[in-house]
Simulated assay, not measured.
Amino acid sequence: MLELTFGFFAMAAPAVVFAGISKGGFGSGAAFAAASILALVIEPGLALAVMLPMLMLMDVAALRSYWGKWNLRASMLLILGGLPGVAIGAALYARADADVFRVLIGVISIGFVLWQIAQRRGWIRAASRNLPDWAGALAGLVAGFTSFVSHAGGPPAAVYLLSLKPTKTEYQASTVLAFWIINIAKFVPYAFLGMFTKETGLANLVLAPFALIGVWLGVKAHHLMPERAFFLLTYALLTVTGTKLIWDGLT
């Protein structure tokens, strides 16, 4: 059961602002750090349930700034692949316990950091040519699954989108559109699985202003803040939280 204490909101409010900044300005890739942080203090399923409505609100808030600036074909391929990925995630959630999801969220968190480091050091290079449509659908499938179990669909989507050599704004707009639809699709199985409670709803009401503030800051930072500085902070947060979640899940 989620206890709406001062300690919970002291942890949740900055996490939601951080997620909003990522959603609004940095391709959504680091938004899932908020769920990882919350999973340190509450059950993973509740952390996911608290964050999904917040992510949906952030999606709507960010849409206006990036409307029509996306690669529509690429976004649709991610969406079409993402829907069955969501279904696979829902099937796993129905059969797994909380510790499985602690480990999954932790592994995905650490994996995100390692993937980013490898890419920046040139160990992993973006495709020299546009990836084919099937690769976009496959990336969407993986994104839908990882998005369902940890709100971490950004990296697989990025692999495909970056191969298309988009502008910074086109990339950001495409992720906003794709995950707007994928997050809407996640809402139904989350509700069906009983992940939402009265307490998560009350938490959402309190945290909604922080989500909107985060998106506003992210849209501003998209043009002003160095991406490197933002992601360095993200890597540190995800390394610590991911390690702790794996430890808790295994022990």
Rank of each mutant, 00 (worst) to 15 (best):
A157W: 04
D99N: 15
H222N: 11
Y93I: 14
E170H: 02
L193N: 02
V100P: 02
K186C: 08
Y160N: 00
G122K: 06
W70L: 15
K168P: 04
L52E: 01
V219T: 07
A30H: 03
W247F: 12
G249M: 07
L217D: 06
G81P: 13
L177M: 09
K168D: 10
A143L: 09
I213V: 13
I88F: 13
F18T: 06
K186T: 03
A185P: 08
E170K: 04
M58K: 06
V100R: 07
G29N: 13
F231W: 11
T239M: 13
L46Q: 13
M56W: 11
G27R: 05
L131N: 11
A94I: 00
M1N: 10
F196V: 01
I213K: 10
L48K: 00
A13P: 06
F9L: 02
M1G: 09
F145I: 00
I184P: 05
F6S: 14
S174K: 04
A12G: 09
L104F: 11
L92E: 00
A221V: 04
N183I: 04
T241G: 01
F32M: 12
S174R: 01
I42V: 15
G218V: 01
P53V: 09
N204I: 02
I117S: 03
F145E: 00
T169I: 15
T234N: 10
F18P: 03
T146C: 14
F179Y: 08
